[in-house]
Simulated assay, not measured.
Amino acid sequence: MPKIKLDAIDRRILAALQQDGRLTNVQLADKVGLSPSPCLRRVRFLEDAGVIGGYHASLDRRELGLGLTVFVEVKVQRHDDESATAFREAVKARREIISCHLVSGQSDFLLQVVLPDLSAYETFLLDVLLKLPGVSDIRSNFAIQTVKAEGGLPLDHLPETALSLKSPMD
């Protein structure tokens, strides 16, 4: 559960902003059934509480020449703090790696990598991935087709009548 309790209006605000982060406050207020001032207070509270971590533009990878998405399973040799920190810092420094997850199973990490093409991936694999600190094994899975990407977070699990730790709203 979230650290703060969100009511139905908060959830509507979050859903609307996930759908269109460029809504003006007036448009958002209209969409969620509030007047602009209380709507802005709620948005500011959600931002300050860390529920809204930021706003960004959704870019079309193919239009930008990034036609290859690779899911890379990485196994590391050691799991000590120093090795883990070195690996994480090296991954964070690479713009081609758009997500990295510590996972259970046969691999230790799952990376999502975007590149122009297979040739670029070959170079990235040989010059970068295989040289990441502590890497012992790499398995590459190539996306053939993207069925769904960057969907908004599901909010249906949040309670309907959550009232504690609310902002000074309406």
Rank of each mutant, 00 (worst) to 15 (best):
F87N: 01
D20H: 15
Y121T: 11
R139M: 03
S83A: 10
V113I: 04
F124E: 15
M169V: 13
E96K: 10
L155A: 04
L132K: 02
A143F: 05
K75A: 14
H56E: 06
D48K: 13
A90Q: 12
I4C: 13
G53T: 14
A49M: 09
L158T: 02
T69L: 01
S83E: 05
R61V: 02
H56S: 11
V43K: 14
S107Y: 02
K75C: 03
S104P: 09
L118T: 03
D60A: 06
R94L: 02
L23M: 10
L118R: 08
S167L: 03
L68S: 13
N141G: 02
F109I: 00
R78H: 15
T146C: 06
E160T: 11
C39S: 12
A8F: 11
L155R: 03
S136L: 06
S83V: 04
R22M: 01
L125P: 06
P133S: 00
F109V: 01
I138K: 03
E122C: 07
T123C: 00
V135P: 09
I13F: 12
G53Q: 10
G134H: 12
E47D: 05
A57Y: 08
R94W: 01
S58D: 15
G105M: 00
S164P: 12
K5V: 10
R61G: 08
G53R: 12
L132F: 06
G151N: 10
A8R: 13
G21W: 11
H79A: 02
R11C: 11
A49G: 11
R42G: 05
L115Q: 07
I98D: 05
R78G: 06
Y55S: 05
F87R: 03
R41A: 14
L23S: 12
C39R: 13
V91H: 01
T85R: 14
I13N: 09
D20S: 13
D117V: 00
L40W: 14
L155M: 09
V32K: 09
L17D: 04
L111N: 08
L129T: 04
E73Y: 01
K148G: 12
A84Q: 13
R139C: 02
H79M: 09
V72H: 01
E73Q: 05
V51S: 07
E122G: 12
F109W: 07
L46C: 09
A120T: 07
L153N: 02
V32P: 03
